[in-house]
């Protein structure tokens, strides 16, 4: 009814509308029509699961991270190189532009990013078709999974497999992040520093909790438009300098070149909480 009336207004010569009003209404209609047709092309079926990759690209400040060979400088002015960067990411949650929230199922939400293994840099998620405006995930392995039955610890969580290098046997729990390297400023043998951060809050007595949640707004870098039959990649940069520089600027080798307890790892966790940022989305 309304459309009929507008049309009559537009095309009836005897109407009292001024010419510019005619133009306004006409262009509004055209734009609406275009928008409607656009939407039709991009129609999402939220009951269909489609591929979404999240790429973790390790960088050091403004340069790409080169394991072993690259030389970098921390906020304390110490030069160092990096021999190992590994960390767990888990519990992915996405918010659709329509406000609905999708939580990636527990059994598919654990990934181990290893700088030395390119195939580990792009976790593949299955999410309902839709346009997503925020992405959040955890750095580390949540306390529930950390205390789960051994039969539930498969894939990257297998303590005989991928997680063998990321698990404290003597203080049951996953290591969330490892940063290892060398620096002339470290006096330990081989100038080696090893920072291993873990601690999910303790089983029976409360201990340091080094789990950190990363919350990323995708709107400025590009929302993720997920649809089956196409690939969508949320490209994140992970600045490993920020593990050392941040709330606490870490001095390599002081007080120790070896961090292996939850409490000693806390300053590093506070730093790495903000090491990841959204660069762009490849739709």
């Amino acid at each position: 009814m309304l459309i009929a009336r507008i049309l009559r207004l537009l095309f009836n010569n005897k109407n009292r509308l001024r010419p510019y009003m005619k133009k306004v209404i006409f262009s509004t209609l055209a734009v609406t029509f275009l928008l409607l047709s656009c939407k039709k092309n991009k129609e999402y079926n939220s009951s269909v699961l489609a591929d979404l990759t999240v790429e973790f690209d390790q960088v050091a400040g403004s340069s790409d991270l080169d394991l072993n060979t690259g030389s970098y400088t921390n906020a304390m002015g110490q030069s160092f190189n990096v021999t190992k960067v590994k960390y767990f990411v888990s519990n992915f949650i996405l918010t659709n532009t329509d406000g609905t929230v999708y939580t990636v199922p527990q059994d598919e939400c654990y990934f181990l990013i290893d700088e030395s293994d390119l195939s580990s840099h792009m976790p593949l998620l299955k999410v309902p078709e839709g346009e997503y405006k925020t992405l959040s995930f955890m750095i580390g392995v949540d306390s529930l999974r950390n205390t789960m039955d051994v039969s539930q610890r498969t894939g990257v969580l297998d303590v005989s497999g991928a997680a063998a290098d990321m698990y404290w046997t003597w203080n049951s729990g996953y290591i969330f992040l490892k940063l290892e390297g060398t620096s002339p400023d470290v006096s330990a043998p081989g100038n080696i520093f090893k920072y291993h951060v873990g601690g999910f809050g303790g089983y029976s007595s409360p201990t340091t909790n080094n789990l950190r949640t990363v919350m990323l707004d995708l709107t400025s870098g590009g929302t993720a438009k997920v649809k089956s039959g196409k690939s969508t990649n949320i490209y994140l940069t992970v600045d490993i300098l920020k593990i050392l520089n941040g709330t606490t600027n870490i001095t390599l080798g002081t007080p120790t070149a070896e961090v292996h307890s939850p409490v000693a790892g806390e300053p590093l966790a506070n730093n790495y909480a903000s090491m990841i940022s959204h660069d762009h989305t490849e739709n």
Partner: peptide
């Protein structure tokens, strides 16, 4: 340090 018997033997083995 170990709260689940199933994960106990990993410690001496490794």
């Amino acid at each position: 340090g170990i709260v689940d018997l199933d994960l106990q033997s990993v410690a001496p083995i490794t």
